[in-house]
Simulated scan of single mutants.
Amino acid sequence: MADARFEDGQERPLRLIARDSEDLKVVSALVQDAVLSAQDLSYSARQRRFSLLLNRFRWEDRAAAQSAGRAFERVRAVLDFADVTRVAHQGLDRRDPDTVLSLLAVEFSATDGSDSASPGRVLLTFAGDGAIALDVGCLDAMLADVTRPYAAPSRRAPEHGPD
Rank of each mutant, 00 (worst) to 15 (best):
R148W: 09
S21R: 07
A157H: 00
F72M: 06
M1S: 13
D112E: 02
R58V: 05
D140I: 00
A64M: 09
Q32R: 15
L30R: 03
A133V: 07
V78S: 11
V84A: 00
L14F: 10
V100A: 10
T125M: 04
A144N: 12
R56N: 00
R94M: 15
L139K: 05
F50Q: 01
L124R: 01
P13T: 02
A4G: 03
L36P: 02
Q47F: 10
V78I: 10
R49F: 02
H89Q: 14
A38C: 07
Q90N: 11
L30P: 02
G128Q: 04
V75G: 08
A157I: 02
R95D: 15
Y43T: 08
S44E: 12
T99F: 05
V27A: 00
D135S: 06
D93R: 12
D112F: 06
S114E: 02
A65R: 14
Y150W: 08
G161T: 05
V78F: 10
D20E: 13
S116A: 15
S51K: 11
A110Y: 03
L124E: 04
D112W: 06
E11G: 15
G91R: 01
S42M: 12
F72D: 06
P162M: 12
A63Q: 14
L123I: 04
T85M: 07
W59R: 08
R155S: 13
G120Y: 04
P149C: 13
R5N: 09
R49W: 04
D129I: 02
V26W: 15
V146Y: 08
